[in-house]
């Protein structure tokens, strides 16, 4: 059984149905890519996995999402703990307008960690995991907004890693970055998957092919096909997937 088990998930923004009976299983410590044209529901799907869609007024969700066997849509679920466990990296890097130190340790403070040694250790370890420690260890007081886009995105990932998540959700994490930076973030993802389960939404099919182990193709709120990346890109079983990945559509 996968670390994330989704069955028959439908999602509505008011009357608009954004997801239609999605069922899939995501494996632990693999990278799963979700591809599809804009507005196909892939970002909505990603955000159902840590219930960020709860912030949208008038949204409603049916079906079941199990994470580590726990139904995250049942009553009484600890949302704060869920979001600690399932971190989200946004499309545009969104470090807080605070110092680098405050950004990385934000999650720790939020979750009540006060021990200075623990904070120092996690700070170093999370910045090391995203390969920022060497560059930034002497300028932790700098405002995070003064970093480059790539550094900011790494910092956002470090901010998640600091609270020891299990799953990293990435919503087009490279769309605001140039090619060179994209490549470096992809390298980082390959390293992170040794410890974390990564689900990435991407517009960029080459990126999905390059980094992911599994790929799902969304179209109009429906999960058309899901399988190993090599299979999806070489021998798709559904005609619509084939049209999309060969560039005839999308």
């Amino acid at each position: 059984m996968g670390i994330i088990e989704v069955s028959d998930l439908s999602f509505f923004y008011g009357k608009f149905q954004a997801l239609k009976n999605v069922t899939l299983s995501i494996e632990k410590q693999k990278i799963t890519a979700l591809i599809g044209p804009s507005g196909c529901g892939k970002t909505t799907f990603l955000r159902t996995l840590n219930r960020m869609n709860d912030l949208v007024e008038g949204a409603c969700c049916q079906g079941q999402v199990l994470i580590d066997g726990l139904d995250i849509y049942q009553k009484g679920v600890d949302l704060l703990e869920l979001r600690r466990k399932v971190g989200l990296v946004f499309q545009r890097p969104n470090p807080f307008p605070l110092s680098i130190f405050d950004n990385v340790t934000y999650g720790l403070r939020v979750h009540g960690v006060q021990d200075r040694d623990v904070i120092q250790e996690r700070l170093r370890w999370s910045l090391e995991s995203v390969r920022l420690w060497k560059e930034l260890k002497d300028s932790l007081d700098r405002n995070a907004l003064s970093l480059t886009g790539e550094q900011q995105q790494r910092l956002c990932i470090a901010r998640l890693i600091a609270v020891e998540p299990e799953i990293l959700l990435m919503d087009e994490p490279c769309s605001a970055l140039d090619l060179f930076a994209t490549e470096k973030i992809e390298d980082l993802m390959r390293e992170l998957k040794k410890q974390y389960t990564i689900v990435i939404v991407t517009h960029n099919m080459q990126q999905a092919a390059r980094v992911s182990d599994f790929t799902g193709y969304f179209l109009l709120g429906e999960l058309v096909e899901f399988g190993e990346t090599t299979q999806i890109f070489t021998a798709p079983t559904d005609r619509r997937t084939e049209d999309y990945i060969t560039g005839r559509f999308g």
């Binding site: 979001r83 600690r84 307008p97 979750h111 901010r159």
Partner: peptide, 15 residues
Amino acid sequence: VPPAYREGSIALGAT
């Protein structure tokens, strides 16, 4: 304040 700040914080499990 850009909504991304708020979302980023909520997504980290902040109240």
